[in-house]
Design a protein around this nucleic acid. Sequence first.
DNA 1: GTAAGCTTTTACCAATCGGTCAAATTATCA
DNA 2: TGATAATTTGACCGATTGGTAAAAGCTTAC
Lengths: 214, 214
Amino acid sequence: MAVPRAAKTQRRTRIQEEKEERILEAALDVFSAQGFRGSTIDQIADAAGMSKPNLLYYFRTKEAIHRQLIDRVLSTWLEPLQAFDAEGSPESEIRSYIRRKLEMARDFPRESRLFANEVLQGAPNIEDELKGPLKELVDEKAEVIRAWARAGKIARCDPYHLIFSIWSTTQHYADFDVQVRAVLGQKQAGEGRFEDAARFLEQLFMDGLRIQAK
Amino acid sequence: MAVPRAAKTQRRTRIQEEKEERILEAALDVFSAQGFRGSTIDQIADAAGMSKPNLLYYFRTKEAIHRQLIDRVLSTWLEPLQAFDAEGSPESEIRSYIRRKLEMARDFPRESRLFANEVLQGAPNIEDELKGPLKELVDEKAEVIRAWARAGKIARCDPYHLIFSIWSTTQHYADFDVQVRAVLGQKQAGEGRFEDAARFLEQLFMDGLRIQAK
DNA sequence: GTAAGCTTTTACCAATCGGTCAAATTATCA
DNA sequence: TGATAATTTGACCGATTGGTAAAAGCTTAC
C-alpha cells in the first residue's frame, strides 16, 4: 500500500528530491509570471514535465507548492540586508547593498517577481513574515543608519524610507522589466542597463546622503 | 428584439453611462487586488451590485472591461510626466514631479496596482502603449533633463534611470503598501508615511542631483 | 396608451479548475 | 528473485469558470 509522500521512511528518496526540485523550479516560472490565482496546477505540471496527479503526489495542494516557494525566496531575498554591517563604512556598505540588490534583480528576476506578486496582492500568505522577521531586521539596520547620521558620517534622513528607496529602485529592474525595456528601446537589448543603473543609483545615493567618495 | 449594447442608437443611454461607470469602478477594485487572471466576472458583478449576465450586457467579455480600464488608467498615469516642463527650474520641476507622483500613490493606489499587476505579468495588453506613447514621452523629457545637465543646472546623470528611480520610489508606496505598513508598524497607521516619504525623497533627489535649494 | 427598443433575469452550457482514487508500474533491497 | 514500498497513470468528481439564449420586465417617445 502506497502511503503518499513517503510517510513511512524518514529519509527522502533520490527521486523525491529530484522531482520536488523540478516542481519548485517549474512553479517559480509559472507563479512569478502569472501570480498565484492566475496559475494552474496543470501549467506547473506541464512545465515540470509530469502529470497533474503525479505532481500532487509530491505536493498535496497548489498552496503547498506556493508556500514552500515563498519561504525559500524570502530568505534569499533578505540576505543582502543581513549582510549590511554596522562595522563597515557607510560608503562601502550602502554601495555594496545597492550593487547586490541590483545583481539579484538581474540574476533572479523570477524570485523578485514572485515576491512582488505576493505583496502586490495583499501578501495573504506572508503577512506574518513581514511583520515579524522582516520588520525586526529592518528595525535593526535602521538603527545602524541612524547611528551613522548621528556620527555625521551621512546626512540626516529617515532610515526606513532610505531602505524603501533602495528596495524599490533596484527591484524595479526585475519587476518592471518589460516597461524598462520598452522605454529604453533596442539600444539596451543586452544587460548594459544594469550597469548604467548601478552607476546612476550609486551616484544618487552617495550624493543624496552626502557621503564623500574616497 | 434587444440588440445588445445599444447598437441601434448612436447615443448612450443615461442608464448605460451609469452602469458602465459602476462596472469599471467595481472592476478597478477587483482587478487591482487580484490581477486579471485572478479576478472573476462574478466578483466584479457582485461588487457592482448586479448579476453576471447583466454585466455582460454592457461588456461583452472580461477582457473588454480590463482593456477599457487599462486605457483610462494609463492616460492619468502619464499626466504628471506630461506636466514636466522644460521652461521651469530643475528644482521646482523635479520637486513637484515627485510630489505629484507620491500624491497619486496615496490617492489612487488601485490605479497604480492595476498598472503594476499588468506590467509585472508581462504587460500583454499594453506593450504597444509602452513602446509607443510612453517611450516617446520619456524620450522627450529625458532630453530636457539632459539639457539641464549640459547647462550645469544639475549633476550629470542618466536621465532614463533618473525617471525610473522616481517612478519606482513613489509607486512603491502604493504597490507595496502592505510591506511598507508591516515594516513601519503601528506608529504610522495614518497617512504620515507619505509626508515622511516626500521629505526623504525630495532631499535624496535634490542632493543626489546636486541641486541648490533656494 | 402603446409599440419599439432598452434592460434585467432565469436557466443553462461547455470548459476548466483543484483534487481524489484505485489500479498499474517501477524501484529497492534482503 | 521475490516482496515490499515508492511512483505513476487514467479515469473521474464536484465546483467554478467565462459566456449564451430567450423571455420577461421596464423606459421612452409618439
